[in-house]
């Protein structure tokens, strides 16, 4: 069984799909939070992801020049702080003035921010790809040998291991924040009904700041994980992820962070698994069309159940 089906399926389709799904999920959390609380589609979210991976690269370079050999996850700590500050800065000066304006204005403002941030990154670091981690990542030999002795050989490179574990940790932290802290309850309250939250004495501006902090942190994590997976960074990497992340947020239900996580995993797995030779030898759907698969799921969801899997908002 394992030889004929499981080995190839798990190692070459399922695990890569899971890794991609984790990255989508982290990115979609920020999108769905801003959508739920501020009620607009934030197009600059992908650029925050991209900027934080460039910042991580920069911090790794700084550490290396100081003679410390730094793992990307160490460089990601100061980088995620910078990404949060960037998200707060953008909100204060570019989105706050539009708080009471029609939604379309703030959407366009976020579109403008997307282009501004991307151009600034191109000015600072240039349009070329930068190598994040050199070389190719071979599967972890220890896990391979251990699982092979149980006839259950798993081929997981270390980078995928870090991404999977990192995502789970961030999710647990996020779950705690949302369900057990005051700020998390406030976020849920504002997301449900901002006016009611305001009259009950919740400081909405503070909640918005908290939203950007959480969204910025998740975006930074998604950006760094993406860069760890592809091993290079370039200035449109965030934008390329934006559409699948929107699809994930819509699939899970707008304003539902755990829906976004589920949506991200479903979209990531659907993209990779659609190319598996389920029937006969050839791929079911040519891998060239795998983004089509993700978006078909999204469109079907919008038609059948516009509120998404987790009863999100319908605008």
């Amino acid at each position: 069984m394992w030889e004929s089906f499981g080995f190839e399926f798990i190692n070459f389709y399922f695990i890569p799909g899971l890794v991609l799904g984790c990255i989508y999920a982290l990115g979609a959390i920020g999108i769905t939070l801003t959508f739920g609380i501020l009620r607009f589609a934030n197009f600059s979210h992908g650029e925050i992801m991209m900027t934080s991976s460039y910042l991580t690269w920069e911090f790794i370079m700084i550490f290396t020049s100081l003679g410390i050999l730094a793992h990307p996850l160490i460089g990601a700590i100061p980088a995620s702080i910078c990404a949060i500050l960037l998200a707060l800065f953008v909100d204060r000066f570019f989105y706050k003035p539009f708080r009471n304006a029609p939604t379309i204005m703030i959407v366009i403002a976020s579109f403008g921010m997307m282009l501004i941030i991307r151009s600034m990154v191109q000015v600072i670091w240039g349009p070329n790809q930068l190598t994040f981690v050199k070389g190719i990542a071979k599967p972890n030999a220890y896990i391979r040998d251990l699982t092979a002795s149980f006839d259950f050989m798993l081929l997981i490179p270390n980078k995928h291991f870090s991404i999977l574990i990192g995502t789970v940790l961030i999710m647990l932290l996020f779950n705690y924040l949302l369900s057990s802290t005051k700020i998390g309850k406030g976020m849920r309250a504002v997301s449900d009904n901002p006016d009611l939250a305001k009259v009950s004495g919740i400081d909405v501006e503070n909640i918005i700041k908290a939203t950007w902090i959480v969204g910025g942190f998740c975006a930074a994590a998604a950006g760094v994980f993406l860069a760890m997976d592809t091993q290079f960074i370039e200035s449109t990497m965030g934008f390329r992820m934006l559409l699948p992340m929107f699809a994930a947020a819509i699939l899970g239900g707008i304003g539902r962070p755990f829906g976004a996580v589920a949506g991200g995993l479903i979209i990531g797995l659907a993209e990779e698994l659609s190319a598996y030779p389920w029937l006969g030898d050839g791929p079911v759907i040519s891998p060239g069309y795998k983004s089509g698969v993700a978006f078909s799921i999204m469109v079907l969801m919008l038609i059948i159940k516009p509120s998404g899997l987790f009863k999100g908002k319908v605008f």
Partner: peptide, 9 residues
């Protein structure tokens, strides 16, 4: 971001 299913197919 990933072409793993392509190369395996």
């Amino acid at each position: 971001a990933s072409y793993r299913s392509e190369v395996n197919t």
